[in-house]
Design a protein around this nucleic acid. Sequence first.
DNA 1: ACGCCTACCTGCTTGC
DNA 2: TGCAAGCAGGTAGGCG
Length: 304
Amino acid sequence: MPELPEVETVARDLQRWVAGATIAGAEVRWARTIRHPQPPERFVAEIAGATIRRVDRRAKTVLFHLEDGRVMTVALRMTGALIVAPAGTADDPYARVVFDLADGRQLRYRDVRKFGRIGLWPGGGLRSVGAGRGARSRRVADGTRRYRIGEVFSGHGPEPLSRSFTAERFAERLQRRSAKLKTLLLDQAFVAGVGNIYADEALWRARLHPLRAADTLDPRDVRRLHRAVRQVLREGIANRGASFSDYVDARGQQGDNQERLAVYRRTDQPCYRCGHRIERIVVGQRSTHFCPRCQREPVASVEP
DNA sequence: ACGCCTACCTGCTTGC
DNA sequence: TGCAAGCAGGTAGGCG
C-alpha cells in the first residue's frame, strides 16, 4: 500500500479539500471493503449526513474525524486511493465506495485489488488502528470476528516522525529484539507506517544489512538507523510520495519520490554511493533491495 | 517472540 | 500472438 509518506500526503490533501464537507450519501460497490462487523447497508445509513471535521493519519490509515465524534478509518492496503472528484467527473470502474458530498463533488475510494478496508467507529477510545498480532479480536457464535474498540485500536508501535520517537527509545526497542532489521521495520507493532519501500531505503541510508539482527546494533548503528528512517519518510512526504503503478494523491496525481529512491526496485543498477550492483533478496516473503558493499553482511557464526 | 504459510484480489510484465 | 507464471507498496490469521 501506500506507506506513511503516501498516506500523509493523501490525508493533508483531504484536510485541505474536504474538511467541513458533508457526506450526503454513499454507495458501496464492493461489500467487503466495509470492515467487519459493519454490514455495508448499515454503514451507508450511518455515514449519510455526517460532516467531516478533520482528516489526518495514524500509521498507514487515513482518519476522517466527523463532527459528531465518530471516526471513519480508511486503510488503503496495496492499491487503495482516496480521490476527490469534481462534479461531473467520469465514473471510475475501480471505485469501490463512492461518497457523494453535499456540494456536488464525490469522494471516491478506488482500489484495484480490493484489499483496503473502511471502518466507522464511535468516538472515544481511538488511539491507533489495528496492527497484526497486537490487535485483539474474539470469535462470536457464528464464527465471525468481533472487534472491540480499544483492543482494535491498540496494536501500533510509535509514530516514527513524532517528537517522542527518540533514538534512545528506538535503541531500547531494538535491543529487546533478535529479529532481522528488515522484518522489524515492516512490523507495524514495532514502528508504525514503514513499508517495503521505505524499509529498504532506510537500511541503505544507514548502511545496515537487512538481515542484521536488531540486538547486534551498536549505539552508532542505532543513531544512523533512527535518523535514516525519519529522513526517508520526511523526504517521501516532501516529494508527495512514491508512485509505481497505483499510488496517487487525492487529486489522482502521481508522486515524485520514486525518482529519488536509492535501492528500491533498482536491482542490478549501480549503488549511488559505491557503484556496486544493487542486489535483490527475499526476506520474510518480501522483496528486499540493498547494496552488498555498503551494507555489509552480518557476521555469520562459524561452525567449529 | 518468531518465522513460515495461506488468503485476500487484479493487472501488468516476462518468458516460452 | 497466446498463454502461463511470476510479480506487486499490506495485513490478518493459523500453525509450530
